[in-house]
């Protein structure tokens, strides 16, 4: 395997991805990622110097509209999906340490 993913990189990617992998899961993820990156490295066979990165296939223009409210009060429907709510607000675990 050409791509060896270090412990530091795994740790860093876990933070970015907001995922907490167990020991076994982590080793599998390391292996899978290494294999995929080996495969993706195939792109390096192509000389892309001078080629502009293409994010969208058509020249996309932003479309503007008037900023008017079109929906009614949906707070009940929206909050009914919340794992926890309090006084018409989303409830979350402690944000700051006591």
């Amino acid at each position: 395997m050409a791509n060896i993913i270090s412990d530091e990189t795994m740790e860093y990617v876990g933070i970015l991805a907001k995922l907490e992998l167990s020991g076994e899961e982590r080793e599998q993820a390391r292996k899978d990622m290494g294999r995929m990156l080996d495969y993706i490295d195939k792109l390096n066979e192509l000389d892309t110097a001078g080629v502009e990165p293409m994010s969208h296939v058509f020249p996309a223009q932003n479309v503007f509209r008037e900023d008017v409210v079109t929906n009614g009060d949906e707070s009940e429907g929206i909050l009914s999906n919340a794992p926890a709510e309090k006084d018409n607000m989303f409830a979350v675990p402690n944000v700051m340490s006591r």
Partner: peptide, 16 residues
Amino acid sequence: GPEVKRRIMLGSFVLS
């Protein structure tokens, strides 16, 4: 699930 985690990990890596 595992496949979702696999792609999120890879995606986070290539964007880092």
